[in-house]
Design a protein around this nucleic acid. Structure first.
Length: 420
RNA sequence: GUGAGUGUAGCUCAGUCAGGUAGAGCGCCGGAUUGUGGUUCCGGUGGUCGUGGGUUCGAGCCCCAUCACUCACCCCA
């Protein structure tokens, strides 16, 4: 039996790196007073097709959709924003003042796996609702920058663009279609297809033969409405004031239909073809589309697997699963007495990391396992020690010899060793 | 969805050129005087050669299909 394609296991050796990543991201978000929200992994299919957009690849080809026993169409969430918005509307939170929330968890897209792309992957997202002004756009970007800094990631850069209002975007879309249709003979086959589905994405084409055609196209930034231009300008001022480096990328369009005004991506060149580790933007029409009262929104999502690839393996976290003490026991009497002892130690020292040897075996093999475990000390309990009510403490990582401690003094002695 | 590359022991890989008994290192288990790990030495365990079919007297090797992984296109976190 094998795991389903594109779905990866996280093994004990990988878990500490994941924990460091998750704890770091969460502590930054919480320091900005974003509050955690959790919502189901499965939603009605309609929620995603309405919010993400009927013309997008995600909705058309990539969703894990099935019918439950009542015949209702359900989908494993391909992204988090839709479910987050639904939950906030359903519980009346979105209309009771501004909300800043974050969430975390697995997302599912049926794509061909490759580097930085799996079918089950994990995101942390943050969203802010009810705030129209660009100070919140700036804050979300600053949150990201602080997370990279906390994780020691420095080779990412920020790309920024504004799509303008929804109607300005439609207007530009028509301009672009007109321009591209006039040069239809110069379009490659992908772009001909995209002319119907998502013409703005043609601007992002990787085909070098398309570049002169693209550079001659009308610019999105030139055609956005005045209010959006002002919004963008204030945002840039805030980023400049905070010394956040960014690059304006007028071809940056997001794949999901719900974005307007600000869009941004954090990009690295260290991950092959999937260089985006975090992306987001504004979606002022989404809440209304999903059935709530019109409420502006802005947010981002980061791909944890991709970020993990950029993190240097941390020394400290590799030790977090390593026992500090390993208790070995020789003889049936010692096993019984040792079990009681270990439980008493756990009662009195909640932070103690003690591995109790299980599974028997010779004394020699038990000590070998104590060494392999990485523990600093072996606690040794044989019939003699049981009779004398003592324990032998054997340092495994330094040259000093083993010594005997009475059980009365054991907690004190272990506390002393842990403090070293 | 399209294209290319790769699947041999728990891991890293030889063996494929030229069809002829399945290999190495590491790991794991055990031993080297009684209840003492690591280093060393000795011994042992371990493989449906991804899976299924075909060609052949004979296939890890050649052919077909299929699955998985990797990378790229596409798309996106």
């Amino acid at each position: 039996m094998q795991a389903v394609r594109g779905m990866h296991d996280t093994l004990p050796g990988d878990a500490p790196g994941w924990r460091r990543l998750e704890h770091t991201v969460q502590s930054v978000l919480r320091s900005y007073c974003y509050r955690e929200i959790r919502f189901p992994i499965i939603e009605k299919t309609e929620l995603f097709s309405r919010s993400i957009g009927a013309g997008t690849d995600i909705v058309n080809k990539e969703m894990y959709t099935f019918q439950d026993r009542n015949g209702e169409f359900l989908t494993l969430r391909p992204e988090g924003t839709a479910g987050c918005v639904r939950a906030l509307i359903q519980h009346g939170l979105i209309h009771s003042g501004p909300q800043k929330v974050w969430y975390q968890g697995p997302m599912f897209r049926h794509e061909r796996p490759q580097k930085g792309r799996q079918r089950q992957f994990h995101q942390v997202g943050a969203e802010a609702f009810g705030i129209e002004s660009p100070d919140i756009d700036a804050e979300l970007i600053l949150v990201c920058a602080r997370i990279w800094n906390a994780l020691g990631i420095n080779d990412v850069c920020l790309e920024l663009n504004s799509l303008g209002s929804y109607s300005a975007r439609q207007h530009y879309r028509n301009l672009l279609i007109e321009y591209l249709s006039d040069h239809r003979d110069q379009l490659d086959s992908d772009s001909v297809r995209r002319l119907e589905t998502n013409p703005l994405r043609i601007l992002d084409s990787k085909n070098p033969e398309m570049q002169t055609l693209i550079s001659g196209a009308p610019s999105l930034l030139d055609s956005i409405d005045d209010e959006s231009a002002e919004h963008f300008s204030v945002l840039r001022g805030l980023l400049d004031a905070n010394s956040v480096d960014y690059e304006i990328n007028p071809r940056l369009v997001r794949g999901l239909d719900y974005y307007n005004r600000t869009v941004f991506e954090w990009i690295t060149d260290r991950l092959g073809a999937q260089g985006t580790i975090c992306a987001g933007g504004r979606y002022d029409d989404l809440v209304a589309q999903v059935g709530g009262k019109p409420t502006p929104g802005v947010g981002f999502a980061m791909g944890l697997e991709r970020i993990l690839e950029l993190m240097e393996p941390g020394q400290e976290e590799q030790d977090t699963d390593t026992p500090r003490f390993y208790q070995v026991m020789a003889g049936a009497e010692a096993v019984k007495s040792g079990s009681l002892l270990a439980e008493r130690l756990r009662d009195e020292m909640p932070g103690l990391k003690l591995m109790l040897h299980c599974g028997g075996g010779s004394f020699k093999s038990q000590l070998r396992k104590a060494d392999k475990s990485g523990a600093e000390y072996a606690l040794i309990l044989g019939d003699e020690e049981v009779a004398k009510n003592t324990v032998q403490i054997k340092p495994l990582r330094k040259d000093s010899g083993q010594y005997e401690v009475s059980r009365d003094k054991l907690v004190d002695e272990i506390t002393r060793l842990m403090g070293e």
